[in-house]
Design a protein around this nucleic acid. Structure first.
Length: 155
DNA sequence: GCCAACGTTGGC
DNA sequence: GCCAACGTTGGC
């Protein structure tokens, strides 16, 4: 009873956690998402869904590789840890506010696909694609099968 | 329920 | 490091 595979894009600052880090550890709980829209997207994720790994806040922002959703959503443990930068005093074990999924390494691109270049394909990707829509800062967003195909063709 | 103040994201 | 664009918070 599983629905069709879906696709997502997840952003990370490489100084915090990069595609190389993911390659090293294999699977990583995607901690620290503190935006409801992004959280809700993670709640929709299914094991096996495709993930585009995006590096933000870096010299050349862009997509650097691929991962795979390795768990369904569960409470982000960092919300309960006082010493964590992701600590949320309003979250309790009984009523967690934030979820995460585990993300598994699949492969790293030979070269990153720069945001610049992605913008150049706005027409094929569609106006509604959150990554290139002005003013959108979502860190987790859905990617359609068509968009996935367009993006992978740029690799 | 409005909205100003504040914090964060993320490209540049 | 700057700052525009957002999201969240909290006083009222």
């Amino acid at each position: 009873m599983s629905s069709r595979k879906r696709y997502w894009l997840m952003k990370s600052e490489p100084t915090d956690f990069s595609i190389d880090d993911l390659e090293r550890v294999g699977t990583e709980p995607w901690t620290g998402v503190r935006n409801y829209q992004a959280r809700n997207f993670m709640r929709q994720m299914q094991v096996g869904d495709g993930v585009l790994f995006y590096h933000s806040n870096t010299q050349v922002p862009g997509i650097y590789g691929i991962g795979e959703v390795a768990s369904t959503a569960y409470p982000d443990p960092t919300q309960f840890r006082k010493k964590s930068k992701y600590y949320d005093p309003k979250a309790t074990q009984e009523q967690p506010r934030w979820d995460l999924v585990d993300v598994k390494f699949v492969r790293k691109f030979d070269r990153g696909i720069p945001l610049d270049e992605i913008r150049g394909h706005a027409e094929a990707l569609g106006e509604e694609f959150a990554l290139i829509r002005k003013g959108t800062r979502l860190s987790v967003m859905p990617v359609t099968a068509a968009q996935w195909k367009v993006l992978l063709a740029l690799e």
